[in-house]
Write a protein that binds this DNA or RNA. Sequence first.
DNA 1: TTGTAGGCGTTATCAT
DNA 2: ATGATAACGCCTACAA
Lengths: 352, 352
Amino acid sequence: MIDDDATPPNVTLEEIARAAGVSPSTVSRILNGTARVLPAKQKAVEQAIARFNYRPNVLARGLASGKTDTIGVLTQTVSSPFYAEWLRGIEDGLSETGYTALFVSSRWSIKDEMARLEQFIARRVDGMILLHAQLDEASLIDYSRHAPLLVLGRSVQNSASLASLPLDNLQGARDATRHLIDQGHRRIAFIAGPPNHEDAIERLDGYRMALEEAGIAFDAELVEQGDYLETGGVAAMERLFARGSSFSAVFCSNDQSAYGARLTIFHRGLRVPEDISLVGFDDLPTSSYMTPPLTTVRQPTYEIGRLAAQGIVQMIRKQPIALKTIPLTLVIRETTRRWAPASTAKARRTSR
Amino acid sequence: MIDDDATPPNVTLEEIARAAGVSPSTVSRILNGTARVLPAKQKAVEQAIARFNYRPNVLARGLASGKTDTIGVLTQTVSSPFYAEWLRGIEDGLSETGYTALFVSSRWSIKDEMARLEQFIARRVDGMILLHAQLDEASLIDYSRHAPLLVLGRSVQNSASLASLPLDNLQGARDATRHLIDQGHRRIAFIAGPPNHEDAIERLDGYRMALEEAGIAFDAELVEQGDYLETGGVAAMERLFARGSSFSAVFCSNDQSAYGARLTIFHRGLRVPEDISLVGFDDLPTSSYMTPPLTTVRQPTYEIGRLAAQGIVQMIRKQPIALKTIPLTLVIRETTRRWAPASTAKARRTSR
DNA sequence: TTGTAGGCGTTATCAT
DNA sequence: ATGATAACGCCTACAA
């Protein structure tokens, strides 16, 4: 009988060795370029490998060598457009190094986060990259004892095996708010992010700071709670309208909130930016295709991802790395415009 | 000297056994629930595990057992909003089964696709899910000999280790086009997807079929090539305008193209849907937040992801599975409206 | 340069 | 019920 439908007869290094008439170690050496081998044998082995379609068993290799050439990457949500670019950057950055990324998400749950990190360790990843880790610093230090750890979008005490690459959310939010102020806006509403997110708090702080610097009193009436999601933006915007406070601009703590706010404004029959200026935060890929294109604070996530990939590899190789806080830049598009105090919130000119 | 900064002294099963005063096999049995063990020993082992913070080495386990509890998931681009929901569905679907997903992307390159699958096999994944695999069927069959393979968004000859879950793109495109026709549109432009994508072709076919059924002659002048990306939508729309042919609606082969088209229309000073009706395909999460919310064909990617997760697990367990083609549903929102033949492409009423 | 042998941390097959 | 013991597939001194 022929084993047609049977489980694949996975070829092993030993069989290759036998087929090529050499010892297993020689095959291993050729595979890893660990030592020079006679051209003749080299060729024989390569042919055998090709003929049998041999692929080294990663598990066995990892067990024996103690390295897996794998980087664990923890995101909060794989499906978020925000993380997507980050992952792409990491993947691209890693592709040239021989490491493979293992993406998982923890759904903003600290418990999941721990479970995922445990998994990474159980899988013996060579390094880990955490996007917006929520874990306390002590835990991070603890995990970093198993493999180098790089935390993005957050600042922690760095060491040889633990590094962080903070983003200047405060500065970004400040710039965005200042831009609105420069355009003549005085009543600027703010849709906040989750109150327990460090970066959301920083963005609120940046907003307040810019107001203060411009001598504009902070008005709690103009601040509404969002959740970094579109639905939260919709709800917050509705509450803002319902409250009746006047405002000529809205600064949203992230683009997704801005999408939601924009929808509410649209359904309200108001125009952006003629009636209300709108600013987001993140610069998601689709933000430049919003109608009109969204003015927002750009986080160079793709580039950060690449940097992180390089960084973690350097850490694994025990090379020193220097990460400096990344500046965020305001991207002015078409949802903001100069505010003439005389204007009312009513439509005045024919829209395009 | 104390090894403070040293590599973690990874605890092994053997050490746990020693600490608990039992044999390694007993620990293993407790870990896997393979056999009943005396409560006393059970407890001793559990305490040792907790005390040493022991985590089984996944690699060793995989080597010995031949299973890795890992599912390889191949996407074309991790960063695409389109795949994001799919991944989330898969992750959620898998979370209850004890399997972990290994996400990788092949960037629409067949070469990369093969390389990724080889990696999966080298890592000894227990099963694979491919989103929009481009590989020819023979290769798929070949790979499926190593581990069960589930192909999404495509139809292949099914077997015990190879299954597919096709999506009815043709029907979806037909419904969308018919919707426009029902609204009185006769001159309906089409922005196509990559000519080498099976689903893009099916969508074009659906468009043509609906036209034909309605007795409307197909006009090549109204079809422009896109690339499934926003930029392609922008360019295609511009070419459509430049050509000068009249049309009252545009059907885009995917939402991202629609975003691009919508931007061009906006910059052109025309309104949606007053001047031009617009329909997309996919129903990305952000599409309901477009201004105005986009009418589109919904692919239940999240649900499909969950189904796929369950499906692959069943295949691994050698349970029979039955996958039927998934219908796509038209979601009518605010970018389409009835077309009055008398209208011209000029603005007529004041926009909101 | 090349081969031999031991070990990596589990699981699984036997006995007991 | 529990404990030896042999794989699992590869790497790496060590020896030749």
